[in-house]
Amino acid sequence: MAYEQKRLAELAALVQGELVGDPEVLIGGVADFDSAGKGEITFVADLKRGARLDECKASAIIVPNSVTEISVPAIRVRNPYLAVARIHALFVAEPFVATGIDARAVVGQDCHIPAEVAISPLVYLGNRVRLGQRVALHPGVVVYDDAVIGDDVVLYANVTIGRCCRIGNRVIIHSGTVIGSDGFGYATDGSGRHVKRPQVGVVQIDDDVEIGANTCIDRATFGKTWIKRGTKIDNLVQLGHNVMIGEDAMVVAQVGMAGSTTTGNNVVLGGQVGLAGHIHLGDRVMVAAKSGVHNSLEPGAIVAGIPAIPHKTWLRASAAYAKLPEMVREMRELRRQIAELSRAITPGEEDSPESNG
């Protein structure tokens, strides 16, 4: 796809980088190091590829500040990943096109829908739904009664927003995700039968949150399940009722959080992490992939394993685990040697004083 070309000087100003070389070089897109060509900008995130800079065929390159010698026009920055993300977003950004409400959409009673919306075929809006400006609803989106959706929201195909749920501004929700399904709450009677507890709370998604495909966020039993500003949630994540995730968290694929678990800000949960219910993770906690967390964690904790323990301890334990078969063999050999020594220093019955009369 062709994008509007930008001068290299403009891109350097955008990312507050140091321009090296011709400021008038025209850039029309972003590509990876190996495939980038004329008219494109690429990047090197670390010095491992520093020796290959002379192989670069792109018109310009983004490099770390530590790269001092380079033969092609470049932008030096502290964080190349961040810089290339901002530049790439500039190229791919598309203006919102207000196509209105498709005739094949279903709109309930007393809805508030501004003029600047794009509502696709087969969208269903319940009664009293409120949409903000520049909302895009893709085919198959379902928004139940009394839900509120803020400005500049994109809901991709087959997203479901439950009744009374609230979606903030600039939220992106990818295909197949369900916001506001019933929480998994049951009481068990004396005969072992499970009685459903009504789930009468809501889900609140704050501004600038992005949620991946096929994720489920349950409504609260009472009150709200709450995803705070700037948090990013991957595909196939399950968040139970009354979960609260702080600001700017990163939740990677297949994470499961049991009901009433909460986190602080800037928490990172690796893929397939499981969190028990009714615990709290402090600010900046990091949990390694596939870990199981059963207790609350202090701010800044870095943990791994099942059950999760301090990450450095887990690394040492993992190294020891690989040596267990060898350690077992050594232990058996030591036990055999101890038994032989014990027999050697313990007199037998024939050598005892009683046997000599």
Rank of each mutant, 00 (worst) to 15 (best):
P310S: 08
K312L: 14
S260I: 13
S66E: 09
Q272G: 06
R284T: 07
V252T: 06
W314K: 14
S71D: 11
E354S: 13
V84A: 00
K228I: 03
G256E: 02
Q254M: 14
V135W: 14
A93C: 10
L19K: 01
G230E: 15
S296K: 07
L11G: 00
V123H: 06
G29Q: 02
L82I: 05
C164P: 03
G37C: 15
V77C: 04
R219N: 09
N356S: 11
F43P: 01
C165G: 08
I41W: 01
P114H: 07
G300P: 05
H311I: 14
V142N: 03
G357A: 11
M286D: 13
A319L: 15
Y144K: 11
L131W: 12
N79A: 10
K232P: 06
L341K: 04
A308I: 07
K228N: 12
I227H: 04
H138L: 15
L47D: 11
A157W: 11
I61N: 00
A36H: 01
R7D: 05
R219D: 08
R284P: 06
G259I: 03
I179M: 08
E10F: 07
A289G: 10
Q272F: 08
G246K: 01
A31S: 13
S355L: 03
K48M: 14
A288H: 10
A253G: 15
M257F: 11
K6H: 04
G162Y: 00
V303L: 00
G190L: 05
F184N: 03
V44G: 02
A308H: 05
R52L: 09
L53S: 06
A85L: 10
V67Y: 12
A187D: 11
P353Y: 05
T225S: 03
A157K: 06
Q272P: 02
P353K: 09
R336T: 07
L334S: 11
T261R: 12
A220M: 08
G180S: 08
R166L: 11
G176C: 01
S318A: 13
R49I: 02
N127W: 12
D351E: 08
G150W: 02
S120G: 14
A317N: 12
I62H: 00
A249Q: 07
N265Q: 15
G282A: 04
G201Y: 03
R343M: 06
A136F: 15
V209L: 04
S59V: 05
R229Y: 10
D110R: 14
Y81R: 08
I245V: 14
A320K: 14
G300T: 10
E298Q: 13
G39S: 04
L125P: 06
K57H: 07
D189K: 03
I87H: 10
G190F: 03
G259C: 05
V285S: 00
K38E: 14
L122I: 07
A319F: 13
D283H: 01
L275D: 00
G108K: 01
G271W: 04
T231S: 13
L334N: 09
N79W: 03
K6W: 07
V209I: 04
R197F: 08
R130Q: 15
G212C: 08
